[in-house]
């Protein structure tokens, strides 16, 4: 489903070109859960953003469902993000102008796969059924992250990319949210690539990939 071959990426910094990824190769299959770990600045988020088609690699091939997205234009990548990928951010990144129900439905409706029954089930499973008419600013951090996960899962994406989804939550809430996410991912059969700093959380996923100096160990 997701296949990265010799991905290279660098940024222009104050001292010139700074290489971030130096020939990274990785594969995530359907139903597979992979933890991406590494020190701060090791390029975890950059790799995740490339996988989502939010940015383009300098070199290498990045295939999503058999298609090399590094060779596609902006519109195609946007369509892939809508239809194939689900993103969960550390800071939740909900749409502040929409209430919980509209946030949950947002990506599914963008993808043209809105399933109200599945959304209702998700709302109950995520404990959001009593909060549907609230706005993001009226929710706690844990509630907001559950909405973000629900938004992603409601669209039933083939691949979920999560960037430290529990990094902003306390340990107890973070564990509960991750548990729920893993259970729902298993139910939908989606692949999951999750960035995390925590070895404890990484251990709960099927496989672990560690980034160091721009390369996978």
């Amino acid at each position: 489903m997701l296949e990265l071959c010799d991905i290279e990426k660098s940024y222009i910094g104050g001292t010139g070109r700074v290489p971030v990824l130096r020939g990274v190769s990785l594969r995530v299959g359907p139903g597979e859960t992979v933890a991406l770990t590494g020190e701060s600045g090791s390029g975890k988020s950059t790799l995740l953003h490339l996988c989502a088609g939010l940015d383009l690699p300098d070199a290498g091939a990045l295939c999503l469902q058999g298609r090399d997205i590094s060779q596609t234009d902006d519109s195609t990548r946007a369509r892939l993000r809508r239809g194939t990928v689900g993103l969960v951010f550390q800071q939740f990144n909900l749409i502040p102008s929409l209430d919980v129900a509209a946030n949950l439905a947002f990506q599914a409706r963008l993808a043209g796969r809105h399933d109200p029954a599945w959304q209702a089930t998700l709302a109950v499973r995520l404990g959001l059924d009593g909060l549907l008419d609230r706005y993001p600013e009226q929710l706690s951090g844990g509630q907001q992250q559950r909405v973000a996960i629900g938004r992603t899962l409601a669209a039933k994406p083939a691949l979920i990319l999560a960037d430290e989804p529990t990094g902003n939550l306390d340990e107890e809430t973070g564990d509960a949210v991750l548990e729920l996410m893993l259970a729902l991912v298993a139910e939908t059969g989606a692949g999951l690539l999750m960035v995390t700093h925590s070895p404890r959380l990484a251990a709960r996923l099927g496989r672990r990939a560690h980034l160091k100096g721009g390369r996978l160990d």
Binding site: R82, G83, N93, I95, L110
Partner: peptide, 15 residues
């Protein structure tokens, strides 16, 4: 910060 998530969820910058 308000537009980036919408972009990430599948809308082009142009749109």
């Amino acid at each position: 910060p308000q537009l980036a998530p919408v972009w990430a969820l599948g809308l082009t910058r142009r749109r």
